[in-house]
Amino acid sequence: MDFDIIFGNAARAAFGPEAIILALAAIGLNIHFGFTGLLNFGQVGFIMLGAYGTSVAVATFGWSLWVGIPIGLFLALALAVALGIPTLRLHAVMFAIVTIAAAEIIRILIGSTDAIGLTGGPLSVSFDAGAFFDLNPYADGPQDRYGVGTFAFTGQQMWVITVGWVLVALVSLIVFLIIRSPWGRVLKSIREDEDAARSLGKNVFWYKMQALMIGGVIGGMAGVIDAIKTSGADPNGFRPQVTFYTYTALLLGGAATYMGPVLGAILFWFLREWIESFLRQLSAEAWLPGAIADFLEGSEGIISVAMVGLALVLLMLFRPQGITGNRIEMQLDAR
């Protein structure tokens, strides 16, 4: 068993594009759920529209990537408005179910054979992200690697990662600025008790809408990075569990904190990849009984996702505030 390889793989996942995508999705969700208290269970819908908006604009309509990206973000914004107008007045649980349903509707429509001409339907869509990689300052030869051991990236990956983490930092800064302002204070008051906010003269609907739009667009950014990273989009990548993973990352790091979603996303991917690599190494060990090795073989990914589920349960049982959250604030919830 080579723990260097396991650690290297885990570190690569923790700082790679997947973690960036998850971090952005979680930052957006943090605005919805963490600060405003909106139980958005359809965050994947915003990611999906960001990814498909970009991909379809470039692949189907042949527009430039620099046009495609704003289109992806605009679609995420449009979803926030379309979803928000009718649903923001609903009870929290109903809002959760409507958002999950809306994201599923979009996924089914995008992935249907009727949509092949537009989105590629079940065949997925792919495009040439050359416009993005043309700007790549990293040498990108077949031999070029950045990092040590298995914790290494190609030049192309380095470019995605650099842009991605800069984006995460920028977005986090903006979120920090707007949340510590009186505007952010109103969001928190809505989370605590929206009738109280109303009685103090705050237009609760409009603030919720603003929160939904901002968090949705940040979710859309996650989708844009996803589309660039994979040079396309596949409807199967946008199932409801993506939203649940996002919640896992957010709750792991600590909801309603500034760094929580980012730390949570890094930790999420580190642990998930660590478990998967560990199991892969384990199943190759000679001393392991054959039956167990056969069982493990090929199931590493399934088990690591199962661990995500287990982690959610344990997290809520033993540290509901996440790694950076405040215990006292959490206890106030139970009242």
Partner: peptide, 26 residues
């Protein structure tokens, strides 16, 4: 508002706050 400080609770009551507009917030 349980998870806001007493002072923050008070400040919420103030009317016509510039900082409560999204564009001015940052």
């Amino acid at each position: 508002l349980a998870k806001l400080s007493v002072l923050q609770n008070m400040l919420l009551g103030a009317p016509n706050q510039m900082g409560e507009r999204l564009w001015a917030a940052p």
